[in-house]
Amino acid sequence: MNPYDLLFRHVATRVPAELTHRVGVTALRAATPLLGGAGRGAPVEAVRAVQAMGLRFANPLGVAAGYDKDAEGVRGLARLGFGAVEVGTVTARPQPGNPRPRLFRLPADRALVNRMGFNNAGADVVAARLAEVRARGAGAVVGVNIGRSKTATDAVADYRYSARVLGPHADYVVVNVSSPNTPGLRDLQGVDALEPLLAAVRSEVGATPLLVKITADLDDDGVDAVADLAVAQGLDGIVATNTTVARTGLASPPDVVSAAGSGGLSGAPLVEPARAVLARLRERVGDRLTLVSVGGVDSGAEARARLDAGATLVQAYTGFVYGGPAWPRRVLEELT
């Protein structure tokens, strides 16, 4: 057992999950000048770079949206070895998110349950931070994931504002319509609602690559419909998948699962659903879109399985939380 595993098991699990996360992001930001090229080196650099959406990714492993909501740790995450950092989810206006506690661990499943509710500093603040990151050099491809403000009455206008403000500072933009923690958000995955929304965001971001993020809970017809729409509208890719509201097949005791309550489940339990959606998308769109696979990626072997199954890129969040700061390097070493 490595030192991080001991720290996580005996210290971190005794502290509320959101506080641990906050401390981690703060520490990463403070330590960035000291990291130097800590995430680099021969094993990492041996992983083949990926050309996708007109961008060059130093490697196919990225940080999924949700870890660095407010663009506070982009440069530090890049120095740990990630080839891409997806910031967000960011909304047009700042919002506090749902009441705490709202982030829970299921260690027996190497999983998390969250109902954060898009807590973030808002598009204007994040855009200013990203401008500074770009000026200093990010060290990785930077994506921005945008979502609907909880109080927005006009979803299209709300997303349009975020896209207008954040698009100039992003290497790519992801439209998130799949979080279970904003009431009514997943309704936007329906083609009738999604079509005008994507068209509006595209009009704001111009040539910046545009993707949509979908949930693991879509049925096959829903996946096909979103895939067909993405191709028809000239999107650059699909991020699959977001968290799930399902709770089947968990190893955690029922009382632990019940105590965590509602929200999106992430981590190892998403392996099979995420693989299934990836396979469906690959069959439907072939190589016409960049497919970013996320959900249960916790090792180099799993990352390789997704790439072999048709993903262009992979992302992780929960695997990184359980694996610690050395985890990206271990995954990339396994990929070599």
Rank of each mutant, 00 (worst) to 15 (best):
T318E: 10
T290Y: 00
V294F: 05
G36W: 01
V292H: 04
E204I: 10
V314N: 13
L188T: 08
A64V: 06
E72A: 13
V331R: 04
A163E: 09
Q51E: 15
R160N: 09
A232L: 13
L130G: 10
M1G: 13
N119G: 12
L198M: 04
L194R: 10
S203F: 00
A260C: 06
V87C: 12
E333N: 14
P99C: 09
G117N: 07
G36Q: 05
R284W: 07
G249Y: 05
R105Q: 03
E132Q: 15
N59V: 08
I146C: 08
A225R: 15
Q189E: 13
G117K: 04
D68M: 12
V142N: 08
S266C: 03
P3L: 14
V141R: 07
P253Y: 03
R186G: 10
V175E: 00
A52H: 02
P107V: 10
R102D: 01
A71E: 11
F104E: 01
A230T: 14
P94K: 02
V239D: 09
G24N: 11
L250N: 09
L166H: 00
T182M: 10
L166Y: 00
Y67H: 15
G41N: 05
P60F: 08
R282P: 05
K69C: 03
R247F: 07
V321A: 13
W327T: 11
Q51V: 10
S293H: 09
L229A: 12
R129F: 06
G147R: 04
T208Y: 05
P196L: 12
S299T: 14
A127M: 12
G83D: 08
A199M: 14
T20I: 07
A38L: 09
A279M: 03
L281Y: 01
A316G: 11
R105I: 04
T318P: 11
R148Q: 07
K213Q: 07
V321T: 12
Y172W: 09
A12H: 11
G184L: 05
G249P: 10
S299P: 04
P325T: 08
L335P: 13
W327V: 11
P94H: 00
D224Q: 01
N2A: 07
P168Y: 00
V297F: 00
V257L: 06
T336G: 15
P107K: 05
T244M: 07
A301F: 00
P168F: 00
A200I: 09
S293P: 14
R136D: 15
G137S: 13
L197C: 14
T153D: 15
V226K: 02
L211P: 13
Y322M: 09
D192H: 15
P183M: 01
R79F: 04
G264C: 01
R134P: 15
V314K: 09
A316V: 04
R329G: 11
A17C: 07
D219Y: 01
A17Q: 06
R136V: 15
V15F: 02
R160H: 02
R148W: 03
V173N: 01
G139L: 10
F118P: 12
I214G: 01
L77W: 02
V285C: 03
A311V: 15
R164S: 14
A30D: 04
L198W: 11
W327M: 13
T248F: 12
V126C: 07
G264H: 01
V297T: 02
G296T: 11
P3E: 09
G39T: 01
G261K: 04
